[in-house]
Simulated scan of single mutants.
Amino acid sequence: MKKVFALIASLVAVVTLSACEPKRGSDAWCKKMDSVPKGQWTMNDAGDYTKYCVFNQKPEEE
């Protein structure tokens, strides 16, 4: 029973923490990307960083 509870607690923690990701293109996202090594960026990350953080374009509203 303890293992099941621990598994459920772990899943809840993962879901909760993954929901805290800053919106792509926001100032918080730009600051977060500044701390990530460039070698770990995807092509989409690099393109969006250039678009939103370098050229200061606003992300489209969803």
Rank of each mutant, 00 (worst) to 15 (best):
E62F: 02
A6V: 13
D34A: 04
S10H: 07
P59C: 02
Q57V: 13
N56P: 01
P22E: 10
W41N: 01
E21T: 05
D48Y: 10
D45C: 07
N44Y: 04
S26K: 03
K23C: 04
R24S: 03
A9C: 10
K58F: 06
A13G: 05
E61K: 14
G47R: 10
K3D: 04
V15A: 14
Y52R: 01
G25Q: 00
F5H: 08
D34T: 03
A19W: 02
Y52C: 03
L7N: 06
N56Q: 13
P37Q: 13
S26L: 02
K58H: 11
S26C: 05
K3Q: 08
I8C: 05
C30W: 00
Q57Y: 12
L17F: 15
N56Y: 09
Y49S: 00
T16R: 13
K3S: 06
W29S: 01
T42M: 06
A28Q: 13
A13P: 01
P22H: 11
S10K: 07
D34E: 12
Q57C: 09
I8D: 00
G47W: 11
E60N: 04
E62C: 06
F5M: 15
V14G: 05
C30N: 02
K58Y: 06
S18A: 10
A28K: 12
M1W: 10
D27W: 03
K31M: 14
T50L: 11
D48I: 02
E21F: 08
A13L: 14
E21L: 10
E60L: 04
A6T: 08
S10D: 03
S26E: 02
K23P: 04
V54A: 06
F5C: 11
V15K: 06
K3M: 08
C30T: 05
M43E: 15
M43R: 12
G25I: 01
G39K: 15
G47A: 07
F5A: 15
N44Q: 10
S18Y: 13
A46H: 04
K38R: 14
V12H: 02
E61V: 12
A46E: 10
K31I: 13
V4C: 08
T50Q: 09
C20L: 15
Q57E: 14
K38I: 05
I8N: 02
M33S: 03
G47N: 13
L7R: 13
K2L: 14
G39L: 08
R24G: 00
D45N: 14
G47M: 09
M43N: 12
N56V: 12
D34W: 02
Q40I: 03
G25C: 03
D45S: 10
D45P: 02
T42R: 04
R24T: 06
Y49H: 01
Q57G: 06
P37M: 11
P37H: 14
K51V: 09
D27Q: 11
K32N: 11
W29M: 01
M43I: 07
W41D: 01
K32D: 12
V36W: 03
M1A: 14
K32V: 08
F55L: 14
A28Y: 09
S26G: 05
K3V: 02
V12W: 02
I8S: 04
E62D: 15
C53A: 12
K58C: 07
V12A: 13
A9L: 14
K32P: 01
R24C: 02
K38N: 03
C30G: 03
A19C: 10
